[in-house]
Amino acid sequence: MAVKICADSFEPWQEVQQYRNSAKKMAGKSGATAIFIGMMRDVNEGDAVKGMMLEHYPGMTEKHLEKIIAQAQQQWQILDALVVHRTGTVLPDEPIVLVAVWAVHRGDAYDANRYIMEALKSTAPFWKKELLKSDAERWLKKNTDGYASS
């Protein structure tokens, strides 16, 4: 398992490929890979957004993400997991988060990936300040539930 926090933009597919290439222990073992990539949107809560500042607590955030992965490993039969998360200034259409899970079977990969992502969004110590196109700023108090509003 691996957790990576980065202050600069990252290329999700390159991160997955590099990690997979370095994880020789998984060669021939995984039959499924579930990948989630979260991107920065240019609108939130009905307002145009030009960027977002993401802050974290170094050391504590990584340990928290490792704990989430360990909890997923207890619930599903997964072989490995990778979480990459941005900090600093993020612009619309840039990746914010990558969660990749490898397992023998797709059910375990899908379910563990969803669990890791939802736990990350609801409990990981990240703080987000949106930079609105109106030049206003606001700290986000909560994350969305992951579904479009009805």
Rank of each mutant, 00 (worst) to 15 (best):
E94H: 08
L82R: 10
M1L: 08
A103I: 00
D111V: 03
E118W: 02
V49I: 08
H64F: 05
M39C: 11
E66N: 11
Y147G: 14
I5P: 12
G51E: 14
A100T: 01
F126L: 07
F36C: 06
A100K: 01
S9L: 14
K4C: 09
K128D: 04
I96R: 00
F126W: 03
A81V: 10
D80T: 08
S30F: 14
L82Q: 09
R86V: 06
W139S: 15
M1F: 13
D111A: 08
A124S: 01
Y110L: 09
M39L: 15
C6Q: 11
A23D: 05
L54R: 13
A48H: 11
G88K: 11
V49N: 15
K142Q: 14
K50A: 13
D80A: 04
A48F: 12
E130G: 08
W13F: 13
K129A: 11
D8P: 02
L79E: 05
G88A: 10
T61W: 05
I116E: 00
E62Y: 09
V99I: 09
S30T: 14
D135T: 01
P125V: 06
S149F: 07
A48C: 11
P58G: 02
Q18Y: 01
I96T: 00
M117I: 06
A27E: 03
M39H: 13
A119H: 04
T33F: 10
S30C: 12
L91T: 05
R138G: 06
A34R: 00
A103L: 00
V104F: 00
A70F: 07
A124F: 00
L120N: 00
A103Y: 02
L65A: 06
L82T: 12
I96A: 00
Y110T: 09
I5V: 15
Y147T: 15
E55D: 12
S122K: 03
M26K: 08
W139E: 15
I68E: 03
F126P: 01
I69F: 03
A81M: 09
K63S: 10
D93A: 12
A72G: 03
E62G: 07
S30Y: 12
K141W: 06
D135G: 01
M117T: 03
L132T: 00
K133A: 15
G59L: 11
V43D: 14
D80F: 04
K133Q: 15
Q71P: 00
M40L: 06
D108L: 02
L54E: 12
K142M: 11
T89F: 08
E137H: 07
G51P: 14
A103W: 01
S30L: 06
A103P: 01
N21K: 14
L65P: 08
V90M: 08
Q75V: 00
T33S: 10
M52K: 15
Q17H: 13
A148S: 14
A7D: 14
R86G: 05
G146I: 03
E137M: 06
Y57N: 12
K4Y: 07
I68W: 04
R114Y: 05
M52A: 15
V97G: 04
F10R: 13
G46H: 10
G88H: 12
V83F: 03
D47C: 11
T144G: 15
Y19P: 01
Q18T: 02
M1C: 09
T33L: 13
H56G: 09
K24M: 07
T33M: 14
L91C: 07
D8L: 11
D93E: 06
Q71R: 07
K128Y: 06
D42E: 10
